[in-house]
Design a protein around this nucleic acid. Structure first.
Lengths: 241, 241
DNA sequence: GCGACGGTTGCGGGTTCCCGCAAAACATTC
DNA sequence: GAATGTTTTGCGGGAACCCGCAACCGTCGC
């Protein structure tokens, strides 16, 4: 079995190497990459089918790298090993995992035992292994309890990119009014009206920017997801001269 | 010499412990904390005067913890050891370091040798040791080459929190128009007009939200600094019922 | 004293945004 | 097909925002 490690922190890389050696004696070869870009290349060269991947790297995000790798070889098994369980990450991952692929999402704060279990589960048994904390976030984002629909999430990203209503309408092929409706739903679900003072004085908050603010605080968005979205936006803008 | 380590990642904590033992043989006692909150408490209990501190922890940010510690004992020496050199962090740190205190800012990607040098420089010689990359950011933010003045930075934070012009004016004791002037300077310096298409068609970007977006992309702001600012805002709002 | 300069404030108009109201389009169910 | 619910769209008004213009201050240097 060949294993590829994609992780920018050398300490964590060393730890992974040791833990993999201990948990997977059948693993004969370990390759390492320090960022998503070379990770992608190595995966291609070595036709690696087993990958442990950090999210949050400079040259290329773990999510981007994984998407490209899965595009070429959808049967690849990938274990995402991250510090955070931000909804932005969880959403990003489940958006790209191909039909029936085995993958995992384990937090770096997990114990040795948890990580080893996940390694065996994914790479030997072909299971999906998702940490409890992560699972919680996943459920919330998909289930209807305060979760956001795909279209609401789309407009959230769009206003976070700084687009106007009109631009969003154009991009998503909607009428102006529909965009504004979605925004309203978004404002409702984010509970922007909660922390407004009671009185009738003009409100302290600009809803549009406040929405971005609380989305960031709630980890619905993060810097990485924004960067990604920015890329997609400029691609789109290039296509539509 | 007594040393306090405040760092949430156990691997990094172990690495620090080893490196400190190697670089500072005069260090007789090492205490550890896994987040800012207990870091603060331990600093108080042990009257620690030498601290290595991570930024970016859950319970309490390194910056908050350091501010509180320095408030009590301004002669404490603190080495900030962080993954990133975001302007938001650098600004946050230099905002709280007391007159004449010895401190350091070293990136986690630095080599062993660099870290050891910094440890001796700060804790033995009482120097300030700032990594080159960090220094670059610091200069830019203070020097006038595209840097932001304190007041521009203030309004940037305020709109990122989602405040209206009126609310900002109230908070900062300015007229409405002055706030809008500052916003305009901000928009200029962020070069929001750059990536607008030439034509006369209505612009694709909402300046106010776009400003937040590019500030995040440029690391002028990050999730931590926003959280912090959110706290200060709610304190302020409590004071003004 | 005086002109120059940067920062502040008021005014006004054009645009965008927020959102209630109601009609239309589509999907569900009986 | 009739009844019901959901989503989309247009209209319109009030508020907030962007910003040019002009007047008003304080601080310099001379």
């Amino acid at each position: 079995m060949k294993m590829l490690i994609v992780e920018d922190d050398s300490l964590h890389r060393a730890y992974l190497r040791d833990t993999i050696a201990a948990a997977l004696p059948e693993c004969t070869e370990v390759i390492e990459a320090a960022d998503g870009l070379v990770g992608e290349q190595l995966a291609r060269e070595h036709k690696a089918l087993h990958i442990v991947m950090d999210l949050q790297m400079n040259a290329r995000t773990g999510i981007e790298a994984a998407r490209n790798i899965w595009r070429e070889r959808p049967e690849t098994c990938i274990l995402f090993w991250s510090n955070y369980s931000d909804e932005a990450y969880v959403r990003g991952v489940s958006r790209i995992v191909p039909e029936g692929a085995a993958y995992g999402y384990v937090l770096k704060s997990a114990t040795d035992a948890r990580l080893k279990l996940a390694l065996r589960g994914i790479f030997v048994e072909g299971q999906c292994v998702i940490d409890r904390e992560v699972r919680g976030v996943q459920q919330k984002s998909l289930g209807h309890r305060g979760g956001f629909t795909e279209s609401e999430y789309e407009v959230l990203v769009d206003i976070a990119l700084g687009l106007t209503d009109r631009a969003i309408a154009h991009r998503r092929s909607l009428s102006l009014r529909s965009v504004q409706n979605r925004l309203q739903q978004l404002y409702d679900k984010l509970e922007l009206y909660k922390d407004e003072p009671e009185g009738q004085q003009p409100s302290t908050f600009n809803l549009r920017t406040r929405a971005i603010s609380v989305a960031l605080l709630r980890k619905l968005l993060n810097a990485n997801s924004l960067e990604q979205a920015e890329l997609e936006l400029s691609e789109w803008r290039a296509r539509h001269q």
